[in-house]
Protein backbone atom coordinates (compact mmCIF):
# COMPACT_ATOMS: atom_id res chain seq x y z
CA UNK A 1 0.00 0.00 0.00
CA UNK A 2 1.32 3.45 -0.91
CA UNK A 3 1.85 5.70 2.08
CA UNK A 4 2.00 9.44 2.49
CA UNK A 5 4.22 11.20 5.00
CA UNK A 6 3.14 14.47 6.60
CA UNK A 7 5.88 16.49 8.27
CA UNK A 8 4.24 19.29 10.24
CA UNK A 9 4.61 20.58 13.78
CA UNK A 10 0.85 21.11 14.03
CA UNK A 11 -1.09 18.01 15.06
CA UNK A 12 -4.20 19.67 13.66
CA UNK A 13 -2.73 19.78 10.17
CA UNK A 14 -1.31 16.25 10.52
CA UNK A 15 -4.76 15.01 11.48
CA UNK A 16 -6.45 16.83 8.58
CA UNK A 17 -3.94 15.38 6.12
CA UNK A 18 -4.33 11.90 7.58
CA UNK A 19 -8.07 12.19 7.00
CA UNK A 20 -7.58 13.28 3.41
CA UNK A 21 -5.13 10.41 2.89
CA UNK A 22 -7.76 7.99 4.19
CA UNK A 23 -10.25 9.38 1.70
CA UNK A 24 -7.78 8.72 -1.10
CA UNK A 25 -7.01 5.23 0.19
CA UNK A 26 -3.52 5.99 1.53
CA UNK A 27 -2.10 5.30 4.95
CA UNK A 28 -0.48 8.44 6.33
CA UNK A 29 2.72 8.44 8.39
CA UNK A 30 3.33 11.44 10.64
CA UNK A 31 6.38 13.35 11.79
CA UNK A 32 6.36 16.54 13.85
CA UNK A 33 9.70 17.98 12.79
CA UNK A 34 12.21 17.82 9.96
CA UNK A 35 14.73 15.48 11.59
CA UNK A 36 12.04 12.98 12.52
CA UNK A 37 10.59 13.31 9.03
CA UNK A 38 13.90 12.50 7.33
CA UNK A 39 14.31 9.48 9.61
CA UNK A 40 10.83 8.16 8.74
CA UNK A 41 11.56 8.82 5.07
CA UNK A 42 14.74 6.75 5.26
CA UNK A 43 12.98 3.94 7.08
CA UNK A 44 9.96 3.71 4.73
CA UNK A 45 11.70 4.70 1.52
CA UNK A 46 10.00 1.97 -0.54
CA UNK A 47 6.47 2.69 0.70
CA UNK A 48 6.19 6.46 0.70
CA UNK A 49 4.64 7.88 -2.46
CA UNK A 50 4.54 11.53 -1.43
CA UNK A 51 5.83 13.78 1.34
CA UNK A 52 3.70 16.71 2.52
CA UNK A 53 6.09 19.17 4.07
CA UNK A 54 5.45 22.23 6.23
CA UNK A 55 7.79 25.22 5.89
CA UNK A 56 7.90 26.87 9.32
CA UNK A 57 8.83 24.34 11.97
CA UNK A 58 11.07 24.41 15.02
CA UNK A 59 14.54 23.09 14.17
CA UNK A 60 15.09 22.49 10.46
CA UNK A 61 12.68 24.44 8.31
CA UNK A 62 10.85 22.80 5.42
CA UNK A 63 13.18 24.14 2.76
CA UNK A 64 16.17 22.69 4.62
CA UNK A 65 14.38 19.35 4.92
CA UNK A 66 13.57 19.44 1.21
CA UNK A 67 17.17 20.21 0.24
CA UNK A 68 18.45 17.51 2.56
CA UNK A 69 16.06 14.94 1.06
CA UNK A 70 17.03 15.90 -2.48
CA UNK A 71 20.73 15.60 -1.63
CA UNK A 72 20.25 12.04 -0.40
CA UNK A 73 20.45 9.54 -3.32
CA UNK A 74 18.36 6.99 -1.39
CA UNK A 75 15.32 9.21 -0.97
CA UNK A 76 15.68 11.95 -3.55
CA UNK A 77 13.22 10.25 -5.96
CA UNK A 78 10.31 10.58 -3.53
CA UNK A 79 8.13 13.53 -4.58
CA UNK A 80 7.65 16.34 -2.06
CA UNK A 81 4.79 18.81 -1.89
CA UNK A 82 5.08 21.86 0.35
CA UNK A 83 2.04 22.55 2.55
CA UNK A 84 2.51 25.90 4.22
CA UNK A 85 1.04 29.25 5.19
CA UNK A 86 3.84 30.91 3.20
CA UNK A 87 2.03 31.88 0.01
CA UNK A 88 4.35 34.43 -1.52
CA UNK A 89 5.67 33.84 -5.00
CA UNK A 90 9.32 33.89 -3.89
CA UNK A 91 8.73 31.02 -1.50
CA UNK A 92 6.99 28.94 -4.17
CA UNK A 93 9.82 29.59 -6.63
CA UNK A 94 12.44 28.60 -4.04
CA UNK A 95 10.61 25.37 -3.24
CA UNK A 96 10.05 24.33 -6.85
CA UNK A 97 13.67 25.13 -7.69
CA UNK A 98 14.80 23.02 -4.73
CA UNK A 99 12.86 20.07 -6.15
CA UNK A 100 9.30 20.25 -4.73
CA UNK A 101 6.76 18.90 -7.23
CA UNK A 102 3.82 20.85 -5.87
CA UNK A 103 2.91 23.57 -3.41
CA UNK A 104 -0.28 23.99 -1.43
CA UNK A 105 -0.92 26.98 0.78
CA UNK A 106 -2.83 26.80 4.05
CA UNK A 107 -5.73 27.25 4.49
CA UNK A 108 -7.07 24.64 2.08
CA UNK A 109 -10.31 22.80 1.61
CA UNK A 110 -10.38 19.01 1.75
CA UNK A 111 -11.26 18.79 -1.92
CA UNK A 112 -8.48 21.15 -2.89
CA UNK A 113 -5.85 19.27 -0.90
CA UNK A 114 -7.08 15.89 -2.12
CA UNK A 115 -6.84 16.92 -5.76
CA UNK A 116 -3.39 18.47 -5.23
CA UNK A 117 -2.13 15.21 -3.70
CA UNK A 118 -3.41 13.25 -6.70
CA UNK A 119 -1.78 15.74 -9.08
CA UNK A 120 1.53 15.58 -7.21
CA UNK A 121 1.48 11.79 -7.53
CA UNK A 122 0.59 11.92 -11.22
CA UNK A 123 -2.86 10.45 -10.56
CA UNK A 124 -4.92 13.60 -11.13
CA UNK A 125 -6.37 12.88 -14.53
CA UNK A 126 -5.68 16.31 -16.10
Amino acid sequence: MIKLLTIDDSRTIRRVISGIGAMLGFEVLEAENGAEGLAVLGEHVHEIGLVLLDWNMPGMNGLEVLKSAKANPRIRHIPVMMVTTEGERDYIIQAIQAGAVHYQTKPFSQEEMATRILEAMGMGGA
Partner: peptide, 18 residues
Amino acid sequence: ISPSVLVIAAAGRYNQLA
Protein backbone atom coordinates in the same frame (compact mmCIF):
# COMPACT_ATOMS: atom_id res chain seq x y z
CA ILE B 1 -15.20 20.00 -15.45
CA SER B 2 -12.36 18.96 -13.12
CA PRO B 3 -10.96 15.49 -13.82
CA SER B 4 -9.23 15.40 -10.42
CA VAL B 5 -12.42 15.65 -8.39
CA LEU B 6 -13.91 12.89 -10.53
CA VAL B 7 -11.10 10.53 -9.51
CA ILE B 8 -12.19 11.04 -5.89
CA ALA B 9 -15.91 10.89 -6.74
CA ALA B 10 -15.61 7.63 -8.65
CA ALA B 11 -13.67 6.01 -5.79
CA GLY B 12 -16.65 6.77 -3.53
CA ARG B 13 -14.48 6.88 -0.43
CA TYR B 14 -14.95 9.54 2.24
CA ASN B 15 -13.34 10.36 5.57
CA GLN B 16 -14.90 11.24 8.90
CA LEU B 17 -14.74 14.95 8.13
CA ALA B 18 -16.49 14.62 4.77
